[in-house]
Design a protein around this nucleic acid. Structure first.
Length: 271
DNA sequence: AACATGTGCAACCGCCGAGGC
DNA sequence: CGCCTCGGCGGTTGCACATGT
């Protein structure tokens, strides 16, 4: 799909797999096991390239693959892991039994990424004062734009700061000690200790956004702070490591966590 | 009913690292 | 050490279906 054939193997079939091809591939692997992907198509009698066979098996035919919707627990774990690992789908999939990297990647790109970037979108500086309803309308339009970007993988608009985690690819994993620095401990606090405005009045949900003409704010926590008063938090300050049920995990990246510490963290019971 | 737009996902591509020679 | 092959990975695409107008 999309691009020209990678290996110019004329005569090999491409596109969607048929039930018969699935049956042949499954039967072959049951007898001979995985591996030797290059030779597999020839031996199994499939007119496919080895890569295609491997992909089909890994992402669809393996018996241990779990079918059905991603549960809330799984979604929570994906978001947490993505916050730590970035787009390391295979590593993330490794923590979710029965889920494939492709499935998680698709789920992120179609469902979670929209949530993850939403607060940042609302932080676009405004030149005009907006009423609450105007603000919501504006936010809705922004969401629509990003939705399309996420679905089609087109570049984000220049005004959007995309959450980004850059990390060198590890070659091996070991165990180690994770000792949070004071800054990491501070990051671990759900809400940073900032001078923030308070919102007086009613609002419809947590994470609801307000725009005051300079900054964008979200309602903090569960929206029941101090009776009718709700603390607001600047969305532009991106509260690292905090979870918001409407928008997902809010991150500005945790680049100073090394892979050993990360491995230890992921292997601990806390996850 | 017809068309436009949005969404989900399977499958493809190119790149990269490991390992063999 | 350099080259080559293979497997694995993440990014990207197009199709099919759902939803909206």
């Amino acid at each position: 799909m999309g691009r020209s054939p990678c290996c110019s193997k004329v005569g090999l079939k491409r596109g969607a797999w048929t039930a018969l091809e699935d049956k042949i591939l499954t039967a072959y692997i049951k007898v001979h096991g995985e591996g030797q992907w290059k030779n597999l198509p020839k031996r199994a009698g499939l007119k496919r390239c080895g890569k295609s066979c491997r992909l089909r098996w890994m992402n669809y035919l393996r018996p241990e693959i779990k079918r059905g919707n991603i549960s809330l627990d799984e979604e929570d774990l994906i978001v947490r892991l993505h916050n730590l690992l970035g787009n390391r789908w295979s590593l993330i999939a490794g923590r979710l039994p029965g889920r494939t990297d492709n499935e998680i990647k698709n789920y992120w790109n179609t469902t979670l990424r929209k949530k993850a970037v939403s607060p940042v979108i609302y932080s676009i500086p405004l030149k005009t004062n907006y009423t609450h309803s105007q603000a919501k309308s504006r936010a809705k339009k922004s969401k629509s734009t990003v939705s399309r970007c996420a679905a089609k993988s087109t570049p984000f608009p220049a005004t959007v700061t995309r959450p980004h985690v850059t990390r060198a690819k590890p070659t091996a994993y070991g165990s180690g000690n994770i000792v949070p620095s004071s800054s990491e401990k501070a990051q671990a606090q759900p809400w940073p200790n900032l001078e923030l405005p308070l919102f007086h009045g009613s609002h419809s949900g947590l994470g609801e956004e307000f725009l005051d003409g300079v900054d964008a704010f979200m309602t903090r926590g569960d929206g029941t702070f101090n009776g009718n008063t709700t603390e607001l938090v600047r969305t532009s300050e991106a509260m690292p490591g905090s979870w918001n049920a409407d928008y997902g995990f809010i991150t500005n990246g945790i680049d100073d966590l090394d892979m050993d510490s990360l491995t230890y963290l992921l292997d601990s019971e806390d996850w």
